[in-house]
């Protein structure tokens, strides 16, 4: 049963238990399980997928994600990525994966300089990834964001566009990608991307906070990302 997820916990992670709750509880009836992996471990062990959760790892000292990117467990995370294992980085997890070189680009201070905590919409597009392939391209879903450093930058964004590596793009409630719908000044309204192989995904919105109807207007749209990962694991057998 290839449905075991590791959730990496750094000092300062604060969405780790939320992510674990999704796989251990919300998706338990689909056979998903999860465990917390402490950042000082040197191996991710026998997991089929990895979640790098949100928070303020190492207090976001120096730059968001910069210190966590060099944590002991990251060498094993890089090996897992290279072997094709599915990895999703959410918010601070996205920042960590960029700082670790597993995803391209960088996340900088929001254009407004404010910490922004609100629901946004983003459109799913780009190439199929383990975390998006079950969601029809062009669909837009509502998820919360909560970040101060979510302004995505890339020195050659046209190449990313050309390679269909933009997976999530901020849009309005009707699915239109407009500058007004861009909460933080990200280039080309980018909310999330994948790596060149498509198995590593990072996004600033929080799908794990939008997996149960009880959690507000966003409903359970974020669950689609995790369900998609379960389906792709089921179809591919074990990831490794």
């Amino acid at each position: 049963m290839a449905r075991h997820f590791g959730v990496i916990r750094f000092p300062g992670s604060n969405c780790d238990d939320d992510a674990l709750h999704i796989v251990n509880t919300v998706l338990a009836d689909r056979g998903a399980t999860g465990e917390i992996l402490w950042h000082k471990e040197h191996s991710v062990g026998q997991v089929d997928g990895l979640i790098v959760p949100g928070g303020f790892s190492y207090g976001d000292y120096l730059r968001a994600g910069a210190i966590a990117a060099h944590a002991p467990i990251m060498e094993s995370v890089k090996a897992f990525a290279k072997a094709g294992g599915p990895i999703i980085g959410i918010c601070n997890g996205f920042q960590i994966l960029c700082e670790a070189g597993l995803l391209e680009g960088a996340l900088t201070r929001n254009e407004s300089l404010r910490f922004i905590c609100k629901d946004i919409y983003c459109r799913i597009e780009g190439r199929p990834t383990p975390f998006s392939k079950d969601i029809p391209a062009g669909r837009h879903i509502r998820m919360p964001i909560a970040h101060a450093e979510g302004c995505y930058r890339h020195p050659d964004v046209e190449r990313l566009e050309g390679e269909s590596q933009i997976i999530f793009r901020y849009c309005d409630a009707d699915g239109n990608v407009t500058s007004d719908a861009n909460p933080n000044g990200s280039i080309n309204n980018i909310a999330g991307i994948c790596n060149a192989s498509g198995n590593v995904v990072g996004l600033m919105p929080h799908p794990e906070r939008a997996c149960e109807d009880v959690l507000g207007k966003g409903g359970s749209a974020g669950l689609g990302l995790f369900e998609s990962a379960l389906d792709s694991l089921a179809n591919s057998g074990a990831a490794r």
């Binding site: 910069a66 960029c98 960088a106 900088t108 930058r153 890339h154």
Partner: peptide
């Protein structure tokens, strides 16, 4: 190059 600066930006 390794840590103190992020040479992307």
């Amino acid at each position: 190059n390794e840590l103190i600066a992020n040479t992307v930006m």
